[in-house]
Design a protein around this nucleic acid. Sequence first.
DNA 1: AACAGGACCGAAAACGTTTTCGTGTTGAAA
DNA 2: TTTCAACACGAAAACGTTTTCGGTCCTGTT
Lengths: 340, 340
Amino acid sequence: MKKKLTLKQIARELDVSVSTVSKALRDSVEISEDTRHKIKAFAKLYNYKPNNIALSLKNRRTKTIGVLIPEIIHHFFTTVISGIEQVANEKGYHVIICVSNNSFDKEVVNMEILANGSTDGFIISVAKETQQKGDYHHLQEVIEQGMPLVMFDRVIDEINCDKVIIDDVIGARKAVQHLINANCKNIALLSTIDYVSVGKLRTQGYLEALNENNIVINENLILKIEDYDNSEHEIKEFLKGKKIDGLFAVNEHFAIYAINAFTAQGLKVPDDVSVVGFTNGELSKLFIPSLTTVNQHGAEIGAQAARLLIKKLESKEGEEDAFETIIVETGLIQRNSTKN
Amino acid sequence: MKKKLTLKQIARELDVSVSTVSKALRDSVEISEDTRHKIKAFAKLYNYKPNNIALSLKNRRTKTIGVLIPEIIHHFFTTVISGIEQVANEKGYHVIICVSNNSFDKEVVNMEILANGSTDGFIISVAKETQQKGDYHHLQEVIEQGMPLVMFDRVIDEINCDKVIIDDVIGARKAVQHLINANCKNIALLSTIDYVSVGKLRTQGYLEALNENNIVINENLILKIEDYDNSEHEIKEFLKGKKIDGLFAVNEHFAIYAINAFTAQGLKVPDDVSVVGFTNGELSKLFIPSLTTVNQHGAEIGAQAARLLIKKLESKEGEEDAFETIIVETGLIQRNSTKN
DNA sequence: AACAGGACCGAAAACGTTTTCGTGTTGAAA
DNA sequence: TTTCAACACGAAAACGTTTTCGGTCCTGTT
């Protein structure tokens, strides 16, 4: 087992000082061409690579960015990550991902660990529980320590930092408008409870679209779901015996469950009822009927977030710009679950 | 902006030495109860947390494990990761994830970077390109440096290390046997080209099942796909005009594409033709008809891999056990794409 | 001959820890 | 009074780098 080569070993081997080796490898003019060549040849031969940990300690920067997400088994987050990865790698950063499983405590612990030297900055979408509790001290703390923080997707208005969001309200409005254009009169909404910011905003978009078109809002057609795990059953029950010809769901799953429920009732999608979802996952594409949906451009969100963070990281002390909020536009992908 | 508190600052503040502070915080008996209390109170008050980088440098271990996967937008890998995360976190490790995008070069670079101090060991599923090239020097190197390595899913026989795999052959055989039991006579196979190890093994299982049941193998019913992106079209063409009453696909997507192709031909699944897939993703569950499929238990694979790695990491020098290969059993989930 | 200045290199500090070893003070035993 | 442990603490090395500051030559100029 050959251990990793260090500067010290090279120095001893070639009978020079550690400083000389370091300088030679970094092409300092202080070192004669002769010794520089000798050292570099030796280093190359034995495949010397500097120790990142030592570098991090010295430079007080790790060149890695920490990503905190609530869950990883979720197509949207994986697309965001891949956007982050791409930009980060281009700029010579790497990425640590931590998953909170939507637990507040785990989010706090993860942040604390990463903040203690492992990471130069954060990209985070907060856990559901965090939004619910409204306790953001861990976010405040890392900011106070001078670590840049970029929030995406589930952002918190009270926190002053860079943000990347989508126009949830407009996206939802587009979706519902599409249903209205398809001549739907009784449009149902499947949303989440309000403390999840996206649920709230998409609900707002739904309401605005109806208002704009002078359609009276029927509270009976709105379902706010708390328990994901039981949502399939809940949706089935909710849709029973309701006169509905259009439905907007704030995510993919709810939309699929709704379609299945309709089908079970003998209704045809999109002939009898049109359905629009949110988030363009695999499911939307491959399901039959394929799902008309609001596309969130996850990779773009991730890329923008990474760009914002790196910009902050690389700005000189004191000359940081003010915080930005980038809004990534949503698009409506028309497929076979709606008439047009 | 209050910078992170260090031992040195505490020492200066309380007028003791750095060593005293360190010892006090670690409850050394060397330090009098008085000063110990004083120091701990101060540290707690100002929320002292040791710097991980410095600790890593000192201890020459980072307490993080590196995970290298070919792609992240893939349900199977995300389940594996979540299994790894869970076990790792339980044991006080955290996890760095790097994605190779199936590129050999990126895999090599990622390993090199992580190997230089960022990580104590690796869990890896190699890139497709790596399997194709057969160049494993980067794996050999980290092993020679004494870093434990656990491979999963796409493993390489030539490399001597811990492995976690599923019984691809048996899984495939189960799937095909299920089709045979459902009275299928002409069973097609949608696989990948052979250098992808899982494709090869699952193909083998298919062949074995047919042989066991004395069914002659019809090469015309076997399609080996190279280009994922064009697979939908390729499958559609392949299935045209073939007399088929059963189909086994080595992944979810191929199975869905096949079902769509059959449907387009006017065939009913499962009445006219039964279909079995591999990998239990969201799609399989929610597609209509829902897909009978071989369940890979991704989380279990991840958990086992993490356990193996940590065991190696925490074994004393020299007393490591031999390398293990854990086989995680597959299960067949029967749904509506097959008769029974 | 004296000196300036450049070329080349090494010592040491620094990053934030932990740990080994030493040292001074105390109190008690001899 | 001397001696010796026990006690409480500090100095310093170590992990692997980078960088500043000197230091030693040598060369060429007055």
